[in-house]
Computed example of a mutant assay.
Amino acid sequence: MTARVGVVTFPGSLDDRDAQRAVRIAGARPVPLWHDDPDLQGVDAVVLPGGFSYGDYLRCGAIARFAPVMNELVPAARSGALPVLGICNGFQILCESRLLPGALTRNSSLRFINRPQRVRIESTDTAWTNRYTEGEEVRIVLKSGEGNFVADDATLDELERSGRVVARYTGEAPNGAHRGIAGVCNGPGNVVGLMPHPEHAVEELTGPSTDGLDFFTSLLAHLESSTAAPAATG
């Protein structure tokens, strides 16, 4: 059966269609979800896309965390049952929802960044990165004005110790992110927040590479392994 991946559209979302296309290219069925609908429609996973949800009033993601769609998403994700990928603004929403630690603040340059960016995959033990090789460098798109990941030293140390840094910028972080962190995950690895945009690097015609596609094929591999019947014994 084809996996069904929900892509949430908030007022101000910009990359929901791109995320749907990436899901489709990977071989799953994208299911559009509306921010005001509390029903996740039984999807197997959810992508929170990039953009400016609710105009980024108050703080990026601060209003979106209270959207009706989050009422079912947050407890399901926290239980480890629902894989969730938050991209850019989606990452901000996951931090505001306390599904992920830390916060995303203004880029250290105080300028919006829009360019292809190399990042290094630090953890492959997540629902969204298992098709990569640890240490693999990928080229995807970074486009954000508030992508500077910050946290206190104790939180950063714990993320490092527990292997929850998912991706790191190569070289100097372009946005000033602490310890060069581009993405993190929760303890079970089903929730991943990523500041760069893998959905913009899934086909040669429209992106700088196809390096982002395996974030979505990793999900399919995770879902397949999660539903596989146990091997017979005896």
Score class of each variant (00 low, 15 high):
Val166Gly: 12
Leu159Arg: 12
Arg131Cys: 13
Asn186Arg: 08
Glu136Trp: 02
Asp153Lys: 12
Asp153Phe: 07
Val141His: 06
His197Arg: 01
Asn148Tyr: 11
Arg161His: 15
Glu122Arg: 11
Gly145Val: 00
Glu158Met: 10
Glu134Met: 08
Arg131His: 06
Asn148Met: 11
Glu199Thr: 04
Gly163Ile: 12
Val138Ala: 00
Thr126Glu: 07
Val192Ile: 13
Ile121His: 01
Glu136Met: 02
Cys185Trp: 10
Val119Lys: 04
Trp128Tyr: 08
Asn175Arg: 03
Thr124Asn: 07
Gly183Gln: 14
Val202Gln: 00
Gly147Thr: 09
Gly189Leu: 03
Asn130Ala: 11
Asp157Ser: 14
Pro198Val: 03
Lys143Cys: 03
Thr170Ser: 06
Ile140Asp: 02
Asp125Tyr: 03
Ala167Leu: 11
Pro198His: 02
Lys143Asn: 06
Ser162Thr: 15
Glu146Trp: 06
Ser123Lys: 10
Val119Pro: 06
Pro196Glu: 12
Glu158Asn: 12
Val191Asn: 10
Glu136Thr: 02
Glu146Met: 03
Thr124Gly: 07
Thr124Ser: 09
Arg118Thr: 03
Pro174Val: 01
Glu122Cys: 14
Gly180Thr: 08
Thr129Asn: 07
Ser123Arg: 10
Thr155His: 07
Val191Gln: 08
Cys185Ser: 15
Glu136Arg: 04
Val202Trp: 00
Asp153Ser: 14
His197Lys: 01
Pro116Leu: 00
Asn148Cys: 15
Arg168Glu: 13
Glu160Arg: 13
Thr133Gly: 03
Pro196Ile: 06
Gly180Cys: 06
Ala177Arg: 14
Thr126Pro: 03
Pro116Cys: 01
Ile121Pro: 00
Asn190Arg: 05
Thr126Gln: 09
Val192Asn: 12
Val202Lys: 00
Ala167Lys: 09
Val202His: 00
Asn130Leu: 13
Thr129Trp: 08
Glu160His: 13
Arg118Leu: 02
Asn148His: 15
Gly187Ile: 02
Tyr169Gln: 07
Ser162Asp: 15
Cys185Ala: 15
Pro196Tyr: 09
Glu203Ser: 01
Trp128Gln: 08
Val184Asp: 06
Asn175Glu: 09
Val184Trp: 05
Gly189Ile: 03
Arg164Met: 05
His178Leu: 14
Val119Trp: 04
Asn186Asp: 15
Ile121Met: 03
Ser123Tyr: 06
His178Asn: 12
Tyr132Val: 02
Gly189Arg: 02
Pro188Ser: 07
Leu194Ser: 07
Asp153Ile: 09
Ser123Asn: 14
Asp157Glu: 15
Arg120Met: 12
Glu158Val: 10
Val191Lys: 12
His178Pro: 05
Ser123Phe: 04
Gly147Pro: 11
Val192Thr: 12
Arg168Met: 11
Glu136Pro: 04
Ala182His: 08
Gly176Asn: 01
Leu142Phe: 09
Asp157Gln: 14
Asp157Cys: 10
Ala151Arg: 13
Ile140Lys: 03
Arg168Trp: 12
Met195Phe: 01
